[in-house]
Design a binder for these strands. Sequence first.
DNA 1: CGAGCCCCCTGGGTGC
DNA 2: TGCACCCAGGGGGCTC
Length: 274
Amino acid sequence: MPELPEVETVRRGLTQLVVGHIIESVEVRWEKIVGLDTAAFNQQIAGRTIEKIDRRGKYLLFRLSGEKTLVSHLRMEGAYYTVPAGTQPGKHDLVTFHLDQAVDLFYRDTRKFGRMKLVANSDVMRVAGLATIGPEPTADTLSLEYMQKEFLHKTAIKPFLLDQSHIAGLGNIYVDETLWQAKIHPLQPANSLNIEQLETLRMCIIQELARATDHHGTTVHSFTTAFGHAGEFQNELQVYGRVGQPCYRCGATLVKIKVAQRGTTFCPVCQILH
DNA sequence: CGAGCCCCCTGGGTGC
DNA sequence: TGCACCCAGGGGGCTC
């Protein structure tokens, strides 16, 4: 499931593979992904050059010629990869971008949850999700002062961190990881954290996402980079996927509960609810 | 405004 | 071997 480190890894791969190419035509094999059929999407996008690829939170932003942006969210299993022109698409290859220089860019999405939308550059920040997105989790953009003002809700910290309007980029895996690192219980109300805990959490989030990005993201289920490689960060995970195994810090058995409909693994000894 | 729930989907796992 | 079920989950949208 792509979170910020995985999306950033995809962005870097795509930058090498498709920037500078012209989109000659497209084929849409599952209309809900794009919200348009092949003819309508083709009419909007054909002839544009891919000038640059940006990222905001978990959104990929393909900057195209003519002041347009293709906003793409991979959701659970969306993936991009390039193949030689003429390659037959597989069952789960839902969109084909026929590029110049005999390259096809495939969008594959087993569960069909991903979405993409072409908008004018001036409308990008009006796209649902981007309109309300919180700051990027870096030292420059996520300040302690912001967190003190933002974390005033009594909502449990886990769903609070999953809400992209507070901080951009965290998903289920990295929320469980950073809460374990900061020794905070996933049900702890966001407004109950003191300033020391907020600063600890802030640094854990910033460092964990940077470290995961350095490792090309986490591969669970199906994530691969645009080059078809798996990430390596799954080997670094401390709690996610380790229910029933010993806590690396205290040795207690990690437990799994449901928090806001999400599977949540934590240490019942290190992460005490206050 | 917030909490809770539904929905979108399919592959993989489990039980019989 | 096969069938019926259940589960995972990001985020938009809905109701209360």
